Simulated assay, not measured.
Amino acid sequence: MLRSVARQLHTISVDNGKPPLLILASIGNPESSFKGTRHSIGHYILNRLKHIYQADEQVTIDKNKFHCNRREQPQMLFYQSNSLMNLSGKPISKAFKSVHKWTDEYNPVLVILHDELDCPVGKFKTRRQMSSHRGHNGLRSINQHMGGGFTTISIGIDRPESKSSSAVANYVLAKVPPHDLDRIDRTIPSIQKTLEDMKLGKFIFDTNPNYKG
């Protein structure tokens, strides 16, 4: 069933010149138990960006809670998944579809913030729609529920020396060390610049050239 749903979602394309509405969504683990861990660095970045954009007002759309800055043109909605990382697909899909039904003035596009083992601490990568999940279970879950029509901002957390599954699990579930957090903080202005470009339509409508359709 999940595969049939995923096949129904195509890549997001420009819709009659409507301006994009960025749904900036973070995936990780529930902060009640996992706040500050490497696997939830997407939540940390989302909260920092909410502060920068003064997105302090909550709006509920079909029971999904978003934050935004109502004082400015609403080109960004901030959404934090409240599920475990491996189950990200269901809440992200529901939130994304609710915004599609909510507005006909904008072209909603989904941008996922997540941790990236294959990227050094203090770096980030932007990947286009229909890119591989590269073994990331959160992205895999989103793909299963709604297809690959989303852009990602991958925040580097580096890898442990050991490649064993237990070593990797312990690494991503450990707290981010203060010196690593300082390096991650220094990437935020560049991430914000990327978001400003996305608000103008850059990156978000691009598709991975290796995607076969």
Score class of each variant (00 low, 15 high):
residue 131 S to H: 12
residue 189 P to S: 12
residue 63 K to A: 04
residue 159 R to P: 03
residue 35 K to S: 11
residue 200 L to N: 14
residue 101 K to C: 11
residue 49 L to M: 13
residue 146 M to D: 08
residue 150 F to M: 03
residue 74 P to F: 09
residue 203 F to D: 15
residue 205 F to D: 01
residue 67 H to P: 05
residue 202 K to C: 02
residue 87 L to P: 06
residue 136 H to L: 06
residue 209 P to C: 11
residue 188 I to N: 13
residue 147 G to I: 11
residue 158 D to W: 12
residue 140 R to V: 03
residue 15 D to G: 03
residue 152 T to I: 04
residue 111 V to T: 04
residue 2 L to K: 10
residue 195 L to A: 08
residue 75 Q to N: 11
residue 114 H to K: 00
residue 72 E to P: 03
residue 36 G to K: 04
residue 115 D to G: 10
residue 187 T to D: 08
residue 128 R to G: 08
residue 160 P to V: 02
residue 182 D to I: 11
residue 119 C to R: 07
residue 43 H to C: 01
residue 76 M to P: 05
residue 129 Q to L: 06
residue 34 F to K: 01
residue 26 S to D: 15
residue 136 H to F: 00
residue 173 L to H: 09
residue 7 R to A: 07
residue 38 R to P: 06
residue 173 L to V: 10
residue 15 D to F: 08
residue 101 K to N: 14
residue 177 P to W: 06
residue 63 K to S: 07
residue 84 L to T: 01
residue 155 I to C: 04
residue 112 I to D: 01
residue 49 L to R: 11
residue 62 D to T: 11
residue 149 G to C: 10
residue 78 F to C: 05
residue 14 V to D: 15
residue 70 R to L: 12
residue 164 S to Y: 00
residue 180 D to L: 07
residue 36 G to L: 13
residue 145 H to C: 12
residue 9 L to H: 15
residue 174 A to K: 15
residue 185 D to N: 15
residue 13 S to T: 15
residue 106 Y to Q: 09
residue 141 S to V: 02
residue 4 S to R: 12
residue 66 F to L: 05
residue 157 I to C: 11
residue 9 L to T: 15
residue 29 N to P: 07
residue 185 D to E: 07
residue 56 D to V: 06
residue 39 H to M: 01
residue 127 R to T: 10
residue 67 H to C: 12
residue 6 A to M: 15
residue 204 I to W: 10
residue 40 S to C: 00
residue 61 I to W: 12
residue 142 I to A: 01
residue 29 N to I: 08
